[in-house]
Design a protein around this nucleic acid. Structure first.
Length: 516
RNA sequence: GGAUGGGUGGCCGAGUGGUUUAAGGCAGCGGUCUUGAAAACCGCCGUAGGUGGAAGCCUACCGUGAGUUCGAAUCUCACCCCAUCCGCCA
């Protein structure tokens, strides 16, 4: 969410940013907003002037009545009553304009950091490679020597994860389709355990204290059903509702009753019961609407609950940075991806992911971004997986992001790199939407100034001043996709999968997953 | 789900339609006094928006949303949340 005052001061800045994102339609919205905003402020001023007059008159009425001057009171009452419609009209104008502005504002994406830090570009082809780790393996797995017990090299054509998984009898898409439809999977036995091991391993890695060389994230087990406000805060709403699932109580199938009622109302059309039937129908619709409005959204990522942990809070600077991590299921409707990645478990409606979220001051957010991507990379390094870290160009970045790194892991079965993590710094974009602020420390604000009395006053003012926090989020990493990467990179010629060393403590003695 | 009681500034708490411009207290900040501190006394002390060069002025906010009224913290309706008890439940 952008600051309307910043837009007033310099609309061109935001327009240019939208053009850098290759979104001319968003740039056009900026002009609309500026026009609506001046109309809004005009209406607001008129409304408030009328209200001020009304309040003054009402007070006079009270005084007149206290003075037993009934005639004067009545005259004033009549005067105020006459102005009522005007007030209502201006009020309606103002709130309509305000809502329009808010809607437009809430649908404009964040401003990317300047080039060359964030390269200009239209789509993913202009993303830049920031760094690479490891190299494409000759199978069986040999390149990091992380597994000294691995069998001797002999090359073969690597299989895709679903070929391996189905052959092992531990990855079942057909049964999942019976239960839940497409884009779901049932994992069993060694693969189910391997998936669990990956999640545990990632959490353990991120929560390792800084004193022990870790990144010191705080483990959180958050709700995975959240309200509209939380989804708005991290900017999944209002624009991306199509990509989400929501849940209501089981009462919702009352649409059946509605349809029955419509049928009956039609059948009895013209009869005495018609009115009653229509009334019942109305009530059903109203109830259903109420149920839909009391919905909960299934989180598409733990970014939503973790970032919203600080919503509507005023933190002290000493508390920052806050670093949260959580392993949660994530749910995505994949509405825009029909037909894409339909085979295998690369793109599922439900998957597990370990998420990293940091809450920082404006001064430290960009450094924190580097730190976060390092945390995500650590997971892949420990697993001995080859990856490259990309800096996304303006045209490929997400809605709330100022700058994004994607980590792409090498999948030998697919013979390509696939995104396994995405780390973004959002600046104060989400903080505005959540109203998440902090109070700068006294020590900091007293660093500047000469110590004069005037200076002291402004220093006091600065102390009182709250600022929006900066928020960052990143995957550390997507567990489902990481399972794919481990399977394809650690596969053996016979279709078995070697367990990476770092996962062995989590596998209860299993060092190799093979058909039983 | 049912019953009852609640929801007022950072905290406590008064407030049954009009000097409420939300009393009073606590905490906090500044000052007087003091070698210093405490006490005492005096003053300041919510958030957001609009307007203005500034001082200031105006508007909104007493759980949320509608409504009644010339005027609502106060009256009406709906909803949310909290506490306690009951029922159901992993």
């Amino acid at each position: 969410m952008h600051d309307i005052r910043a837009i007033r001061d310099n609309p061109q800045l935001l327009k240019d940013a939208m053009l850098r994102r290759s979104k001319p339609e968003e740039a056009a919205k900026v002009d609309q907003i500026v026009a609506l905003d001046s109309a809004y402020r005009a209406a607001l001023t008129e409304k408030e002037t009328l209200l001020a007059r009304r309040n003054a008159a009402s007070k006079e009425i009270g005084q007149a009545m206290a003075a037993k001057d009934a005639a004067k009171a009545e005259a004033l009452k009549a005067e105020v009553a006459a102005g009522k419609e005007d007030i209502a009209k201006k009020e309606a104008d103002a709130s309509r304009l305000e809502a329009e502005i808010r809607k437009l504002l809430s649908e404009i994406p964040n401003i990317p950091l300047d080039a060359p830090e964030v390269p200009d570009g239209k789509d993913e082809h202009q993303n830049g490679i920031k760094r690479e780790f490891g190299g494409k393996p000759k199978l069986p797995y040999d390149y990091f020597k992380a597994s000294p017990a691995a069998p001797p090299l002999n090359s073969f054509t690597p299989k895709e994860h679903y070929e391996l998984g189905e052959a092992l009898g531990m990855m079942d898409f057909e049964t999942a389709a019976k239960l839940s439809g497409s884009r779901f999977v049932v994992l069993q036995k060694g693969l189910a355990r391997l998936e669990r091991a990956l999640g545990q391993f990632m959490l353990d890695t991120h929560t390792r204290p800084e004193s022990e060389g870790g990144h010191g994230y705080t483990e959180v087990n958050p709700p995975i059903l959240v309200k509209d406000d939380a989804m708005f805060g991290t900017a999944q709403l209002p624009k991306f509702a199509d990509d989400q699932f929501f849940a209501t109580s089981g009462k919702i199938p009352y649409f059946e009753n509605i349809l029955e009622n419509i049928d009956e109302a039609i059948a009895q059309s013209g009869s005495n019961n018609e009115k009653m039937k229509l009334f019942e129908l109305y009530q059903e619709v109203a109830n259903t609407r109420a149920l839909i409005q009391s919905r909960h959204w299934l989180i598409p990522t733990a970014e939503v609950p973790l970032t919203n942990l600080v919503r509507e809070k005023i933190l002290s600077e000493e508390e920052l940075p806050l670093r949260f991590t959580a392993l949660t299921p994530c749910f995505r409707a994949e509405a825009g991806s029909a037909g894409r990645d339909t085979r295998g478990m690369l793109r599922q409606h439900q998957f597990n992911k370990v998420e990293l979220v940091s809450i920082t001051t404006p001064e430290t957010s960009r450094h924190e971004h580097e730190r976060m991507v390092d945390a995500a990379e650590t997971v892949l390094k420990k697993l001995g997986l080859h990856f490259r870290t990309m800096t996304l160009c303006t045209g490929d970045m997400g809605f709330a992001s100022q700058k994004t790194y994607d980590i792409e892991v090498w999948l030998p079965g697919q013979n390509t790199y696939r995104e396994i993590s995405s780390c973004s710094v959002c600046g104060d974009f989400q903080a505005r939407r959540m109203d998440a602020r902090y109070r700068p420390s006294v020590a900091k604000s007293s660093e500047v100034g000469t110590g004069s009395r005037e200076d002291f006053a402004s220093k006091k003012n600065a102390e009182k001043q709250t600022r929006f926090v900066h928020t960052l989020n990143g995957s550390g990493t997507a567990v489902g996709r990481c399972l794919i990467a481990v399977m394809e990179n650690y596969q053996n010629a016979d279709g078995s999968i070697t367990v990476p060393d770092v996962l062995k403590p989590y596998m209860g003695g299993v060092t190799r997953i093979e058909r039983i």
